[in-house]
Amino acid sequence: MALALDILSWAAIITGGAFCIIGAVGMIRLPDVFCRMHGVGIIDTMGIGMIILGLALQTGFNLTLAKLAMILIFVLFTSPTATHALARAARYGGVEPQLDKPAKKETDQSNT
């Protein structure tokens, strides 16, 4: 039982660490600020989620588990809000997304 938990925990932590690094590499490689938000999105969901799952498997049923769950839920609720505020500020500040194709229906650029 303990061995199975250890293996699962290892798998979760390695997956989470790999996704953290992939997200960070994406932040380096992707071309503009709007694309880089997708890289940060990977860290904020899969990276932190899998690492916290790995830590949770090493914990029994106690207050520590509740705290881990709270950290995860809190990050999942706040990170889209922060990303959206940043995207809005970037558009407000005059950064336009680099596009491969033109938008299907151009909206007004008056900083909604």
């Binding site: 709007f34 938000m37 999105g41 969901t45 889209p80 990303t83 959206h84 995207a87 809005r88």
Partner: peptide, 26 residues
């Protein structure tokens, strides 16, 4: 809905006006 879009990697809501969303997709 807007937060679910942003939370899913590959799509980010970058503008909201009433019920019209502007979404950046990778």
């Amino acid at each position: 809905y807007a937060n679910s879009i942003t939370l899913t990697p590959g799509t980010v809501t970058i503008g909201v006006e009433a019920n019209a969303f502007l979404v950046h997709a990778l």
